[in-house]
């Protein structure tokens, strides 16, 4: 306390100066119009500046809430974006010539729409697809599976809700195909080299096959109706037996990104199968 009092006593002139100076300035801005106006303007500017800083600080403290709202909006927009992209992809798909042609060819057949829920596509492996339709939906083994890009494969096994599809990219797959506009047919098989290519074997040498021509299903089986797009000829070469052509085909489907497919329920498949079994039975009896 004594130190404080000594301090006050020693520097009394400073306190007196401060008091008198403040008093002078108060008189200056109070009784002089010009100085009062300048003071008021300056004070207003300072007040506005302080208010601005305060407002910025308050806005900064509310950033967490704003950030959360933005995150919600972002997630919602991402979902919308995904839905729109899928719709756009479907819309593009519908307009392709191949898809329209496939649908035209499949008129009169019952199509069971399905979605690929399991996809194991590897080069050199025996690939399988799993679709989300099963026996409950009318899917049975040996039904054909197609998509917008053309033939996908054949149903291999079914259970109540799902089915296993043997795609073209399986070493045991063999589908009867022909060159569009010609009646010569062969069998589409896969050599495991590339998931985007396969080959047609046993095409007669007198067939006029050229690069770029369309390979489609021949209809010589009860699995696929005739005229379903398979792919385009990439290369024509001699088969190893030297008696026929081998046609390398670029497939219409990219199996790695396959999503929406349709199972083709051939209306007369049961009758055709019955006839085939009867023929086999008759052949067996004749042999005996």
């Amino acid at each position: 306390m004594q130190v404080f009092l000594d301090f006050l006593r020693r520097y009394n002139y400073l306190f007196l100066f401060l008091i008198l100076e403040i008093l002078s300035i108060l008189m200056l801005v109070r009784f002089n119009r010009y100085q009062g106006y300048v003071w008021l303007t300056g004070a207003n500017a300072v007040t506005a500046s302080v208010n601005g800083v305060y407002t910025d600080a308050v806005a900064f403290t509310e950033l967490r809430e704003v950030n959360r709202d933005l995150t919600d909006v972002n997630i919602r927009l991402q979902q919308e974006n995904r839905a729109l992209r899928e719709a756009l992809a479907d819309a593009k798909y519908d307009t392709t010539y191949t898809h329209r042609r496939v649908l035209d060819e499949l008129q009169g057949y019952r199509l069971i729409p399905a979605r690929v829920v399991g996809n194991k596509i590897r080069v050199g492996a025996d690939n399988y697809l799993v679709i989300n339709r099963g026996s409950k939906d009318g899917v049975t083994a040996e039904m054909g599976v197609v998509s917008g890009g053309g033939v996908v494969g054949i149903v291999y096994l079914t259970n109540r809700h799902h089915s296993l599809v043997m795609p073209i990219t399986h070493s045991k797959s063999s589908i009867s195909c022909s060159v569009r506009g010609q009646n010569y047919f062969g069998y589409l098989q896969w050599d495991g080299a590339n998931t985007r290519t396969a080959y047609v074997s046993d095409v007669p040498r007198y067939a006029k096959a050229r690069k770029g021509q369309v390979i489609e299903t021949s209809g010589y089986s009860s699995v696929f109706p005739p005229g379903i797009f398979v792919g385009r000829i990439h290369k024509v070469s001699n088969a190893s037996d030297g008696q026929s052509y081998r046609l390398d085909v670029v497939l219409g489907n990219d199996f790695a990104s396959l999503r929406d497919v349709s199972v083709v329920a051939t209306p007369y498949k049961a009758e055709v199968d019955t006839l085939k079994r009867r023929a086999e039975f008759i052949d067996m009896n004749n042999d005996n």
């Binding site: 400073l14 008198l20 100076e21 108060l26 200056l28 002089n32």
Partner: peptide, 14 residues
Amino acid sequence: TLGENAAAMTFLGL
């Protein structure tokens, strides 16, 4: 000129 000379003279006094 209330305040003008007073403020300046007070400072001069300091």
